[in-house]
């Protein structure tokens, strides 16, 4: 056994839990290895010192605090306990954001101005949409026109039996 193996047996050796073979191996090693013998001496001193640490008395102030502790957890009124569940927290977060936005609107001192701004924005959006649809309509007309021209040119091409030049 090397020094590391012997160190691992110190507790069992000191507490007399080793087999006679292991016990004599430890004793032989301690006779020949100075470092392990020194460590074992410190080991014994450590355990005996720890065993001599006395228990401290609890201060009267702490005893008073401990006796004053509530024995039962203060419980909310049961129907409201659902709000404390972690799974409910995202819903509470969303609800608080919505409430904040509503409060910005309802408690705004310039609510009339705010309403006007909103209706103007809606009108602007509406007219933008109208312009967009008008553009889309002209674009589809343009597309139809191009499609007709393309089909006419295909019809007139030699490949489909027409003359290459549409004017001929």
């Amino acid at each position: 056994m090397n020094c590391k193996d012997i160190e691992n047996l110190f507790s069992a050796y000191i507490e007399e839990e080793l087999s006679p073979e292991d016990r004599s191996a430890v004793e032989e090693h301690l006779k020949t290895c100075r470092e392990c013998a020194l460590l074992y001496s410190s080991f014994k001193e450590t355990t005996s010192s720890l065993a001599e640490f006395p228990e401290l008395e609890v201060s009267s102030e702490l005893m008073r605090r401990l006796h004053g502790l509530p024995m039962k957890k203060k419980r909310f009124f049961r129907p409201f306990e659902i709000f404390l569940k972690p799974s409910f927290q995202p819903i509470l977060a969303v609800a608080s954001i919505i409430l904040t936005l509503f409060s910005f609107y309802f408690f705004n001192p310039d609510r009339e101005q705010f309403n006007r701004n909103i209706s103007r924005q809606i009108h602007l959006g509406y007219s933008k949409m109208e312009r967009f649809f008008a553009k889309a309509e002209s674009f589809t007309e343009n597309l139809d026109h191009r499609k007709d021209k393309f089909l006419a040119s295909l019809k007139n091409s030699r490949l489909f039996g027409g003359s290459q030049n549409g004017n001929e």
Partner: peptide, 21 residues
């Protein structure tokens, strides 16, 4: 549990041994 107790004691004993040396 036994090996943790032994490791703790050894660590303290090594500190003590070093101090003595």
């Amino acid at each position: 549990a036994k090996s943790r107790v032994n490791r703790g004691r050894l660590q303290l004993a090594k500190i003590l041994k070093q101090k003595k040396q």
